[in-house]
Nucleic acid binder design. Structure first.
Length: 445
RNA sequence: GUGGGAGUAGCUCAGCAGGCUAGAGCACCAGGUUGUGGUCCUGGGGGUCGCGGGUUCGAGUCCCGUCUCUCACCCCA
């Protein structure tokens, strides 16, 4: 029988990778909780309809679906927002608002895997449902930054590029675009940053037949280019016609709130941010690695119509998703995965090679007794199964990444003392066994 | 889904123009130095050279297919 390989686009989490994954997800959870969100989760598969409803049938070939024995069309979840909407719709009248929920779902997409993009991954989802106040958008953005900052990514490493579907729609309509033609323009604008100028011009010419209209669009985009101005937001205010001003006031409040929260240096207005998804209705944003401007680690925005679209009441909502794959790449490149290291607190060694038992009178001074008492106190502790020289046992301790080696030797029996060795620095001190065991954490401080 | 590149031990790779039982370093395992490791010494296990087919007296080495990874498209909820 030949070996069977892991499925394309999936990952095996060996202990080392598992430690990284746990560390990332624990950071997400803590950031969610300290920003006042509570955790939820749903089933890992849903009715296929739940996903095709809002995104169209063609999305089916981007996800894994199957038919169960009852003939139901089901799909592995490619995102959790529809599940969230379904769950909230179910209990909307009994949930206190604002509903601030987060989740760390395992998601599946049948896309071609490439760097930073797999078929199975995790995504931190943070949403505020039931508030139309732009404060909710500000708090979501703050929460994302709060996490990134907590793992050592500064405003020099990442940038939150923010725009607004509402403002953009108003601007485009003012230029002369028809309401029902906006979707196509969004798609065009979404591709713009990735295309060379000529390619974009060509595509624009294809989609927007009216040359005058096309020129007005290009001129507007030119003037609002983030590179063209230090403060494109104030430029937007000056440039925007009367009809758009009301939307702009609310939009600039978003930046004001973010400034009050102390994260203004992470945030920029960027007219190029549109997001592919059709359901966004207000502010939209993406967080980018400043070193690799084509790589987004996080994306989100306001989606006020989605819950009603899935059969619920009209309830405003906003939120974002942050994937683990790109995030991990970014952290790894910057050497910021150090926090994920795992290891033992204590490795207990018997230098006398007795290991399992002293004489009956001394049995509470043997390795097994000491290890057990450390574990009872909540410390992680291990020992060598084999009777081998002290040097080998220390090697074991190092291999298991122990912070401290506790060495039991002749003094342990004679005088009730142990040697506690700092594995990182190499230093060692002798302390009373009972004193050590009564407060292991204090003793080694 | 479309195109380019890659695929030799767990990892990083070497393998000359096709020629004997396929190598190195690290890692792993065992033993040694009979009380101090991560930075000593000795030995060992482990590869149907991604997989399948073809050319050839003979293929890790050439050709075709396929799978996986990777880069660029498509898409990105």
């Amino acid at each position: 029988m030949a070996k069977i390989a892991a499925v394309k686009g999936t990952r095996d989490f060996y202990p080392e990778q598992m430690a990284v994954r746990n560390w990332i997800m624990e950071g997400w959870r803590q950031a969610g909780l300290r920003n006042g969100y509570v955790e939820y989760d749903g089933p890992i598969f849903e009715h296929l309809r739940l996903f095709t409803e809002k995104s169209g049938e063609e999305i089916a070939d981007q996800l894994f679906f199957f038919t169960d024995r009852g003939g139901r069309a089901l799909a592995l979840r490619p995102e959790i927002t529809p599940t969230l909407a379904r769950m909230v719709n179910e209990q909307i009248n009994s949930l206190a608002r604002p509903i601030k929920w987060f989740s760390v779902p395992r998601l599946f997409r049948a896309e071609k895997p490439q760097r930073g993009r797999l078929r199975e991954f995790f995504q931190w989802n943070v949403d505020v449902i039931g508030s139309e106040d732009i404060l909710a958008d500000a708090e979501c953005i703050y929460t994302a930054i709060d996490y990134l900052r907590s793992v050592g990514l500064s405003s020099k490493d990442v940038v939150v590029k923010i725009s607004s579907r509402k403002v953009l729609a108003a601007l485009l309509k003012d230029l002369g675009f028809a309401e029902d033609g906006l979707e196509e323009v969004y798609v065009l604008l979404d591709k713009r940053p990735k295309l060379p100028r000529e390619a974009f011009d060509e595509m624009a010419a294809e989609q927007i037949k009216d040359q005058a209209l096309r020129n007005r669009l290009k001129e507007m985009l030119q003037r609002l280019q983030p590179e063209a101005s230090e403060d494109s937001l104030s430029k937007l205010k000056v440039l925007a016609p009367e009809a758009v001003q009301a939307d702009i006031v609310s939009f600039s409040d978003l930046f004001y709130y973010l400034e009050l929260m102390g994260v203004a240096d992470y945030c920029e207005f960027d007219i190029n941010i549109v997001r592919g998804l059709a359901y966004y209705t207000g502010p939209v944003y993406e967080i980018y690695d400043r070193r690799e401007p084509l790589r987004a680690v996080c994306g989100g925005g306001r989606y006020d119509d989605l819950l009603a679209g899935l059969g619920g009441q009209e309830v405003p909502a906003t939120g974002f998703g942050m994937g683990d794959v790109v995030l991990e790449l970014m952290l790894k490149e910057r050497g910021l995965l150090g926090g994920a290291a795992q290891g033992l607190d204590f490795f207990v060694i018997d230098a006398g090679r007795e290991l399992f038992s002293f004489s009956r009178e001394d049995k509470d001074r043997c390795v097994l007794a000491v290890v057990s008492r450390l574990r009872e106190k909540g410390f992680s502790a291990a020992f060598d199964y084999k009777r081998q020289p002290l040097g080998k046992q220390l090697k074991q301790a190092a291999a298991q990444k122990a912070r401290w080696a506790v060495i039991l030797g002749d003094e342990t029996i004679k005088e009730g003392k142990v040697n506690v060795k700092n594995m990182a620095q190499g230093g060692q001190r002798t302390v009373g066994l009972e004193e050590f065991l009564s407060r292991p954490g204090e003793t080694v401080k």
